[in-house]
């Protein structure tokens, strides 16, 4: 998956779940510019995990300041995870790419 596709996914999640109407750019800071408090940061993490079928851990999260950091963390987790197969996820979740 390209960084542009990951960024587009982040923008979708921000619009659907964080009521963020504007553009999302790599240099934007999550707390200061996207105005994410602790509940919104958690919402972002949960919804990105749902969308990309990955698990972000504390190590990832403590180093994330900007949207670009988030893109890089998601890219790393996607590489670790390997290609998605529908039978590896929890029941009821759509396989990646179906959205």
């Amino acid at each position: 998956m390209t960084d542009a596709a990951i960024l587009a996914g982040i923008a979708d999640v921000a619009r659907e779940h964080l009521e963020w109407p504007g553009p999302v750019r790599p240099e934007m800071r999550l707390v200061e510019e996207l105005r994410l408090d602790s509940i919104k940061l958690l919402t972002l993490a949960i919804e990105l995990e749902n969308r990309f079928r990955i698990r972000l851990d504390e190590e990832d999260e403590s180093a994330i300041v900007t949207v670009g950091d988030l893109v890089a963390a998601i890219r790393r987790r996607l590489v670790d995870r390997g290609p998605w197969t529908a039978d590896r996820g929890p029941e009821g979740l759509d396989p990646e790419g179906s959205r």
Partner: peptide, 14 residues
């Protein structure tokens, strides 16, 4: 939760 969420361990921690 499994009907919608992927990382159930995160929700359990919450």
């Amino acid at each position: 939760w499994a009907t919608r969420h992927f990382n159930l361990d995160r929700l359990e921690a919450l």
